[in-house]
Amino acid sequence: MSEATNETVCGAIRDALRMIIDPELGRNIVDLGLIYDVSVEDGGIAHVTMTTTTRGCPASEYLKEAVRNCVWYVPGVEYAEVRLTYEPAWTPEMMAS
C-alpha cells in the first residue's frame, strides 16, 4: 500500500472512531482528544494510541476494546493494535472546541 493509501485509511479510522462515545461526557472520543495517535503500516496494520479521561476509570478497558473492534472493521485494516497510555495525562484542554 502506498503512503497516500495509508493516510486515507488513517482518516477512515478516525471517522469510524467518532461513533464511540465517552459514556459520562457523551461526546465522541476523537473530539474529546482521547485518541493520541493513529498510524497504518503497509499490509493494513493499524496502531492506535489512546487514553481515557481519568486513570483507573472502570470504562477504560471497555473503551479500549471498543476502539479495537471498531478499527478492525475499517476497510483496508488487516490487523489492529490499540495501546492505552496516560503519558501525557488527558486534560480538558485537549477537547476540540
Binding site: I20, P23, E24, E65, A66
Partner: peptide, 21 residues
C-alpha cells in the same frame, strides 16, 4: 454509570449507545 458499563460496555464501538445521562 455501572449499569451503562454492564449493559453497553460490551457493544460500544459496534452499535450506537445512549449516554449515562
Amino acid at each position: 454509570f455501572l449499569t451503562w458499563l454492564e449493559c453497553y460496555g460490551c457493544v460500544l464501538g459496534r452499535a450506537a449507545v445512549p449516554r449515562v445521562q
